Computed example of a mutant assay.
Amino acid sequence: MSRIVISLSGEGRGHAARTLSLLEMLDGHRVLALVPDKIRQWFERETASFSELQICRLPSLSFQYRSSGKLSYTKSWMVAAPFIAKLSNNLAKLREWVSGFGPELAIADFEPLLPRLASRLSIPLLSLDHQHFLHSIDPAALPRQIRRKVVFLRPSVKLFCPTADRHLVSSFYRYPQRSGTDRYQQIGVLLRKGMGRMPSQVGEHILVYTRRSQAAASWLPTVANASRSVLVYGCGESAKSANIDFRPIDGEQFLVDLSSCKALITTAGNQLVGEALNLGKPVLAIPEKGNFEQQINGYFLAQSGMGQTLAVENVSNKTLRNFLERLAEFRKNIAFYSGSGNACVLKSIHQMLGLATAADAKAHIVSSQKIQQVHQ
């Protein structure tokens, strides 16, 4: 039984869903999870059955949005300033927890504290996230209006994780890599065990997931006009309105509704789009305003022929009707899709634990030699 410390970002469903999949793969190992306060209660409920799991509070960053629902990079950086000022203090507090746990491997999902701590404690680090595609993608593969955004965001990705022993980039699509990034390995999205046992059916409802109700306020009524049944997650629990059923966040029920929907409409988060495609569901991606990463995800979704992307201002009865009329076409293309990254992650973890064991053995030999030299 190995000891592994993991950390995750508290921003968005994708990081948490990926971590839950990871924990299932780490069954049989002792795990210390560094979890942001923002999702800690939810995370504790979802992981109640994991007996070898310890959870530690993690100071974290979060994106800031304007009242219109548009992502604001300026506000996000302003809120990040106090976090950066307390970086040394936060690292010192976490060091006590992590050192006491004695991990043989660290796994970080786009979170800035554990990579720095792992470096200081000489713990092998696996970076596992989607965002590092921004560092490794060849901008020439993108439309001209998006290329500058990739160059703009690339330095911030390295701030989150300055260095790692191995990088796994989890994505529902494949992208051309720029030269010098061979150590960034592309893998599929991570899937929960329950998804493999879940029968995928084509029901009557459209499933909607959005992280913020204000972001969906402009297009949700249009979706309601396009379908007799709409199930909505992420806008809070409200009374059922006409054909819209607002549902509370519930991981298991959400997967049931996803596996039985006729299509998914969501912001263009990588993890959920990948889960939907693995269940054979066409996706309409509506990127959050100002979220460059989601715009790129939407672009690759449209290029794949397995779904469509629309800017918020382009959502209308006509464009939604066009999406629904193409569902058969999308399903035909999805039939050839296989995008699970579980096996690659597990292989990397086993390899790195072996490397950690070998490094410990080498250190033990060197230490023994020094002791012998002292006694001679």
Results as ranks from 00 to 15, higher is better:
residue 5 V to Y: 06
residue 7 S to W: 09
residue 13 R to H: 07
residue 14 G to F: 00
residue 22 L to C: 08
residue 24 E to H: 03
residue 28 G to F: 06
residue 30 R to C: 06
residue 32 L to G: 00
residue 32 L to H: 01
residue 32 L to V: 02
residue 38 K to R: 14
residue 52 E to M: 08
residue 53 L to A: 06
residue 57 R to T: 13
residue 62 S to G: 04
residue 68 S to W: 09
residue 72 S to V: 07
residue 76 S to L: 08
residue 85 A to K: 13
residue 88 S to N: 12
residue 89 N to R: 14
residue 89 N to Y: 13
residue 90 N to W: 09
residue 92 A to C: 08
residue 93 K to C: 08
residue 94 L to M: 13
residue 96 E to I: 12
residue 98 V to Q: 01
residue 98 V to T: 04
residue 103 P to C: 11
residue 107 I to G: 03
residue 112 P to H: 05
residue 120 R to V: 11
residue 121 L to C: 10
residue 123 I to R: 02
residue 127 S to A: 13
residue 130 H to N: 11
residue 135 H to S: 06
residue 136 S to K: 01
residue 136 S to W: 00
residue 138 D to Q: 05
residue 145 Q to K: 14
residue 150 V to A: 02
residue 152 F to S: 08
residue 154 R to G: 10
residue 156 S to K: 02
residue 156 S to T: 12
residue 160 F to Q: 01
residue 160 F to K: 00
residue 161 C to T: 15
residue 171 S to W: 04
residue 173 Y to H: 11
residue 195 M to R: 03
residue 198 M to W: 03
residue 204 E to K: 14
residue 205 H to D: 06
residue 212 R to G: 08
residue 215 A to C: 07
residue 217 A to N: 05
residue 218 S to H: 09
residue 224 A to G: 10
residue 241 S to T: 15
residue 242 A to C: 08
residue 243 N to G: 07
residue 249 I to N: 11
residue 254 F to P: 01
residue 254 F to S: 02
residue 258 L to P: 02
residue 259 S to C: 04
residue 282 P to N: 07
residue 301 L to A: 03
residue 303 Q to T: 10
residue 305 G to Y: 02
residue 317 N to F: 04
residue 319 T to R: 08
residue 323 F to I: 02
residue 329 E to R: 13
residue 335 A to I: 07
residue 339 G to K: 00
residue 341 G to D: 01
residue 343 A to T: 11
residue 346 L to V: 05
residue 346 L to G: 05
residue 348 S to M: 05
residue 353 L to S: 01
residue 356 A to H: 06
residue 357 T to A: 15
residue 358 A to T: 07
residue 359 A to S: 14
residue 363 A to T: 12
residue 366 V to L: 07
residue 371 I to R: 12
residue 371 I to A: 12
residue 372 Q to F: 06
